[in-house]
Nucleic acid binder design. Structure first.
Lengths: 199, 199
DNA sequence: ACCGACCATGTCATTTCCTGACGTCAAGTA
DNA sequence: TACTTGACGTCAGGAAATGACATGGTCGGT
């Protein structure tokens, strides 16, 4: 294992290390301070000591810089669903997977709240977040299918699970919930059962 | 009541009538023929006999021209939820509302399929569709709250209902389903009940 | 019949996002 | 050493989106 993030002295490489990380950090800060629309990519690049062109080499567009963690989240969830105990029902597998990743958010609630406030202030970013969650749901549905779950059950369980997660996550982030995210998610799943049964 | 859409002869007004409709039609055609990315707003405007600037007076951006019907759909659904029979459970109210609007799609399946193929070919358009559905879900949740449904039940029922609709709609559009959209939706809701109960 | 406000559209200029083509230089590799 | 690779810079340009201002029919009031 190497540690490319560690700074030694100036006599190292041609470029300062961790360009992508610097861009993400600069973007977060500027989006938070002056809003997403009012900050230009040129500003972000300048603050990171890079050029606008380089920004677009690291991130497909101005929004993507805020969603770099999505892939890791997806991999973790898919892995969890794939390795759920045999005979676990689809929705329970999804619920357990989501509860499993909740710690990733609990740990740095600060940054999560800041990020969500940025997204909440801008429709373009909300769109991007929604499609990330949709891709997540599709990946989970695919994992369920690998477990032998048929359609439309797999898609239904995945989409319903993501919907529950979204509502639980929003509740946990916005109000200063005393419950842990894991608990909010768990409660929301039992509430979904009531909603779907009561008819 | 006047009928500004009716065409008389050329000696009428300064402008050809129904500029917005002409822009929508031109956009649909061009997006379908050459793809969303490869058609410019200037092209659309030219085909509609207008200027680029005028396009942006009618539609907030290049994507919005494809989603003009969303508002009517939302109003119809909210109205339906609001006037559901008393004591109807939240999810059933949502299901009935969605089944109620299914006729709007059944009637012109042609245009619906063409529109969906355009959207399916472009991530930006998928983002826009997702946020339209999210706004829809929020409006439905609000209507449920007006019926006395508490949170998080209202949001859960609305989001789950929209998720079911999305899956049912996709199935109905893509494969040449023999079932009616109304039937697919209905079946999907009972499938959701199984998914949520079986644990 | 005239006048003036109104409103949809046109025209022009500008900013910003995003991309392609090409150049540069340090580090690794044969 | 010579050659390749990778990360970044520089430059040019298309297209989206927006503001400011002009234009000329329409419509209501008198």
């Amino acid at each position: 294992m190497s540690f490319p993030d560690v700074k030694y002295d100036g006599s190292m490489g041609r470029w300062e290390p961790n360009a992508s990380g610097r861009l993400q950090q600069a973007a977060m800060q500027l989006y938070f301070e002056q809003g997403f629309e009012r900050t230009t990519v040129a500003e972000i690049a300048e603050q990171a000591g890079l050029t606008e062109r380089t920004f677009f080499r690291h991130f497909a567009d101005k929004r993507e810089v805020l969603f770099w963690g999505a892939r890791a989240l997806q991999d973790s969830l898919v892995d969890s669903v794939l390795h759920a105990a045999p005979l676990t029902s689809p929705l329970v597998a999804v619920a357990q997977a989501l509860e499993g990743v909740s710690a990733m958010f609990e740990e740095r609630r600060e940054g999560v709240q800041q990020r969500q406030s940025i997204i909440a202030a801008n429709p373009e970013l909300q769109e991007r977040e929604l499609i990330k969650l949709a891709v997540l749901a599709a990946a989970i549905a695919n994992a369920l299918r690998q477990r032998g779950v048929k359609e439309p059950t797999a898609s239904l369980a995945a989409e319903a699970g993501i919907a529950v997660f979204r509502i639980a996550f929003e509740s946990w982030v916005s109000q200063s919930e005393e419950r842990s995210l894991r608990q909010v998610i768990s409660d929301s799943f039992t509430e979904l059962e009531h909603v779907a049964t009561d008819r």
